[in-house]
Design a protein around this nucleic acid. Structure first.
Length: 950
RNA sequence: GCAGGGGUACCCGAGUGGUCAAAGGGGCUGGGUUUAGGUCCCAGUGCGUAGUGCUUCGCAGGUUCAAAUCCUGUCCCCUGCACCA
């Protein structure tokens, strides 16, 4: 058929738009379904990763509409961020215009794919209409005590006079001027996310996230149970507080290590011979970026500080060191070192010749011994300096030590987190201005709600010559009056991390037109009940975005803005998209596609090809626009969904998309040919409809489980092959195929909505299929029988083919006739008896033999052997297979119980079978009703006839 | 090192105790339609066999009447975190 996908697709896209069929409203009478894809940053055209994300989401949104749900399926843009600012500098423009242009581009691409968004709800975060609510929520958080301003180290470039984000620091140098970056303390804004650390961690148990995401979040929060122990410094008033998860090793402490940045270091060493060593170590660590610190893992370095600490439980006097492996920001920045049971401490002790004192044993009657690698699991306490501890194990040991510490006031049990408060402020322009004022006399004062939004100025020229944040030098922006005292005040120039914008945007979608509030509570509660029902996006947001959004939801709940605590019900992380890239086997390196067919630059061996993650740097990306141009949106969507289940990685292949396009053509051909049918009923009609009902049920449950590949396999592949079998079997009844297509077309709609819509209009379906609700497709009782009979025919042809091949090797003459001896009546009879006994849990092993001997047929002497054999194979089976009563399918059991007349069925379909076997004729009779050709009578049993060729 | 996920036929990939020599697709082989090719349709694709047997699901053991599926050990791959005390 002539398939003008562009014409069809654009026609229906326009129609959907004109009739606003995807606009939704709260409706308490209907179950809701909130389908959401991760907020895109508009960087220009849509890429394949987006296509995959949205094709999954759209298929689910459309499916849930078919299921009668009230589906909220919105789209918008996370449009603040540095790339726009940099692009503006490059062009000498303003990020605002760069952003608007990019949004227009991606939106056009999205519309051409036919995604069923409710575009009425769309917004971009970089507009004052959105970010004013960022500011309002910020002030509410401030009032609730969740906002804090304190000093924190940032990456600072002296030359450029600006703060650098981590990704702007390469090899510890500024990406722009190449100067070495330093760590500098600056006043920063924080959100006190750690207040929610426990809830964020504990609630993970109850939410439907993939295991790896949960694991990453657990890891990130990093809760550890332990003790805080105070080590007084010998001869001074100061105290070193150390956190440990292993208080049970307290008696094995032989030194104490401080992070080089620890404030105590300086006072301990100042004016001593140790000062210089410490300064060197500290400066070295201060310069190191995160990246370098990881690379330095292997080399543990430390310097003595020349002072000693006192172990509070036994009075031991142990030296104090500064060590590069102690992280200042975790715990207290001080560690009690137990070289007997901690590998790092052991390595350090060996290097600096410090004593090692083992205090745990593996078994209850062992001695504690020094080992390398050290024994660091839970063990039995040994060599304790205090009475009552030796022999205590694991958690009991820890608890007892903590009890003693608490009793003597030298420590307490406590919990530490790896999670830190959210450093929210960025010294950048293109973000939400933090709505705060600095007043000389009143200090930090929030902007009054009535003065919101604090808008970003539009009259700023961007260029590479300007360094730093343009807000900091813009007097119009800076000037303000203090709302408390009325004196002039200075506006805060920091803007918010853009993760802030995406931490609550899904609430805004629920009520995006609201001019008075971020969102109305009742409306948000309706859509957000049990969270977003399906949230689809990339694994790269496993910790940052997904954790921030969870935190926000809880924090907003606690200030009364909404009712739920977890924003996302089910999370699906889509897999990677791969495409072939040149690859050197020798060097194990992938190259840019412009090296295709060339040689490896390093080793000069010829380059092969292998699948690699689609990326700009490899150039192995595929442009969605070009693919849509060539094959149409439906084919691209089908390919994406059929290529792999959402979570799995997926390989791009030109062949595969072509073959999916062919599949579309075949479906269209099937549809077209069906339009010409007249009323001509046949025996396969009921089979087709039975099969359709069965497939419908399978499809529905696959789709409900977001097993889109399986769903599409049924809707776009199995349905077509059923159609083809129907045609092959001579089916061509108008009424039958009308029903068939009326059910099939909605099944096509989630993956390929345009062609479904086109078909739907052709068959005169009600309204548009995009707003159709599937009526219950209940299976009929007879379905199983219709399917079983056709299955019998297929199996029969299969085995006949097999036997024919064998037969022809044994026969001189060419075979022209197939004789099928169906099971003798008596075998059917005992099969039915066996089935009914098995329903009554008859003990075949114990009583089966007696039973079979009581049967009438057993009296026929020449059959006795066969009767027993048949009985055994039905009931007990052999070593490898259980009795057939257990292995017959429900459908087969029904056929047997109904005394399905096999020979009549075969004779009725003789011509078809003969054609399939390329043989002149097929005839069938029950064993005994004709000659026993080729001695096949004996192998014949119910549903398993003896097949012979002559 | 810790955590999470994997290893199924030529390739991708479904399959969590019997109905499994193992869905579906791709590739390859043969046949038909057609014939300039292609599309399309049918069949085959571990070995064997006038049939329903044999061997196979990373490797080695074990449980069971029965194992791709459960248990133990082991090797390998991917992903994330990582001097986190």
């Amino acid at each position: 058929m002539e398939y003008d996908m562009h014409q069809i697709e654009e026609y229906w896209q326009q129609k959907w738009k004109d009739e606003s069929i995807f606009s939704v409203y709260t409706d308490p009478k209907k179950p809701k379904f909130y389908c959401l894809e991760m907020f895109p940053y508009p960087s220009g055209n849509m890429h394949m990763g987006h296509v995959r994300n949205y094709s999954i989401g759209d298929a689910m949104a459309r499916f849930q509409r078919l299921m009668g749900k009230n589906v909220l399926y919105p789209m918008g843009y996370d449009s603040f961020g540095m790339p726009a600012e940099n692009a503006a500098k490059k062009e000498g423009g303003h990020p605002h215009y760069v952003t608007e242009r990019n949004i227009a581009m991606i939106r056009k691409d999205q519309e051409r794919m036919g995604y069923s968004y409710d575009w009425n709800r769309t917004f971009a975060t970089s507009t004052p209409e959105y970010y004013r609510w960022n500011q309002e929520i910020f002030i509410k958080f401030y009032e609730a005590g969740l906002v804090e301003r304190r000093f924190a180290p940032v990456n600072w470039c002296v030359d450029c006079d600006t703060v650098l984000a981590n990704e702007q620091v390469k090899n510890n140098r500024c990406w722009r001027c190449g100067l070495e970056v330093i760590q500098k303390d600056m006043a920063q804004w924080f959100l006190r996310m750690t207040q929610y650390a426990d809830e964020l961690l504990d609630e993970l148990e109850n939410i439907d996230f993939p295991e790896n995401v949960k694991a990453m979040q657990r890891n990130w929060i990093g809760r550890s149970q332990g003790a805080h122990i105070d080590f007084p410094v010998d001869g001074e008033d100061s105290v070193i507080g150390a956190f440990t998860t292993r208080p049970d090793t307290i008696f094995g402490v032989t030194f104490v290590t401080l992070s080089p940045e620890h404030p105590l270091c300086e006072s301990l060493v100042s004016g001593t011979e140790y000062e210089e060593g410490w300064r060197n170590l500290r400066d070295e660590c201060a310069k190191m970026s995160e990246f370098e610190r990881i690379n330095m893992l292997k080399e543990k370095k430390g310097v003595p500080l020349g002072r000693f600490a006192i172990n509070p439980l036994n009075g031991d006097r142990v030296p104090i060191y500064a060590g590069n492996f102690v992280v200042a920001s975790y715990g207290t920045g001080a560690v009690m070192a137990v070289p007997g049971h901690d590998q790092r401490d052991y390595d350090f002790a060996k290097k600096y010749n410090l004593p090692i004192k083992p205090v745990l044993s593996r078994n209850s009657n062992d001695e504690a011994i020094e080992q390398n690698p050290v024994f660091d699991s839970l063990g039995y306490m040994r060599n304790s300096s205090r009475d009552g501890f030796d022999g205590l194990f694991g958690n009991e040991a820890k608890t007892e030590v903590i009890n003693l510490l608490e009793k003597e006031g030298s420590g307490y049990g406590t919990v530490q987190y790896r999670l830190k408060d959210w450093l929210l402020s960025r010294q950048r322009f293109w973000g939400t201005p933090i709505p705060m004022l600095h007043c000389e006399s009143c200090g930090v004062v929030p902007v009054p709600y009535s003065d919101l939004p604090v808008k970003l100025p539009l009259d700023i020229k961007f260029s590479w010559d300007e360094s730093g944040n343009p807000l900091a030098t813009n007097n119009d922006f800076l000037k303000a009056n203090c709302p408390k005292c009325g004196e002039s005040a200075k506006r805060e120039t920091d803007t918010m991390d853009t993760f802030y914008d995406s931490s609550w945007y899904f609430f805004r979608y629920a009520d995006s037109g609201n001019l008075n509030n971020p969102f109305n509570k009742e409306i948000a509660d309706y859509w957000m009940k049990d969270g977003v029902d399906l949230y689809i996006g990339g694994i790269e947001h496993a910790v940052m975005h997904l954790l921030y959004a969870r935190f926000f939801t809880k924090a907003m709940r606690d200030i009364g803005m909404n009712s739920i605590g977890e924003p996302f019900g089910q999370l699906v992380c889509q897999g990677m998209l791969n495409a072939p890239a040149p690859f050197c086997n020798e060097c194990n390196i992938e190259f840019h596609v412009d090296k295709n067919g060339g040689k490896c630059p390093t080793c000069d061996s010829p380059l092969g090809n292998r699948q690699a993650k689609m990326s700009k740097s490899l150039g192995n990306t595929v442009s969605p626009g070009a693919m849509v141009e060539e094959y149409g949106a439906d084919t691209v969507r089908l390919f994406i969904l059929y290529g792999a289940n959402p979570e799995a990685g997926m390989d791009w292949s030109d062949n595969a998309i072509i073959s999916n396009h062919k599949q579309m053509q075949s479906i269209i051909d099937a549809f077209k040919s069906s339009r010409l049918f007249t009323d001509s009923p046949s025996i396969v009609d009921s089979w087709l409809l039975s099969k359709m009902r069965m497939n419908h049920a399978k499809w529905q449950s696959a789709m409900e489980n977001v097993s889109l590949r399986e769903g599409v396999m049924i809707s776009h592949f199995e349905m077509l092959s059923d159609w083809q079998w129907y045609r092959r079997r001579g089916g061509s009844d108008r009424k039958t195929v009308e029903i068939f297509f009326r059910h099939w077309i909605p099944m096509m709609a989630p993956a390929t909505p345009h062609i479904a819509e086109e078909f739907w209009s052709k068959i005169g379906g009600q309204g548009m299929v995009s707003e159709y609700v599937i009526e219950d497709v209940t299976k009929l009782e007879d379905d199983i029988i219709h399917i079983a009979k056709e299955e019998y025919l297929r199996d029969l042809i299969d085995s006949s083919r097999n036997v024919k091949g064998l037969a022809s090797r044994h026969s001189e003459i060419s075979l022209s006739k197939c004789i099928i001896q169906t099971s003798p009546k008596w075998k059917n009879d005992i099969a039915i008896k066996a089935l009914s006994l098995s329903n009554e849990n008859f003990d075949f092993k114990k009583n089966g033999m007696n039973y079979v001997k009581s049967l009438e047929i057993f009296d026929v002497e020449k059959l006795r052997g066969e009767v027993i054999q048949t009985w055994q194979s039905f009931t007990i089976g052999n070593k490898k297979n259980r009795g057939k009563v257990y292995t017959w399918t429900e459908a087969e059991k029904s056929l047997i119980n109904l005394r399905f007349n096999e020979s009549k069925f075969v004779n009725d379909n003789a011509e078809f079978i003969a054609n399939a076997l390329s043989i002149a004729s097929v005839s069938s009779y029950d064993v005994g009703e004709g000659d026993d050709v080729a001695g096949k009578a004996r192998v014949s049993s119910p549903l398993n006839p003896g097949i012979a060729f002559i």
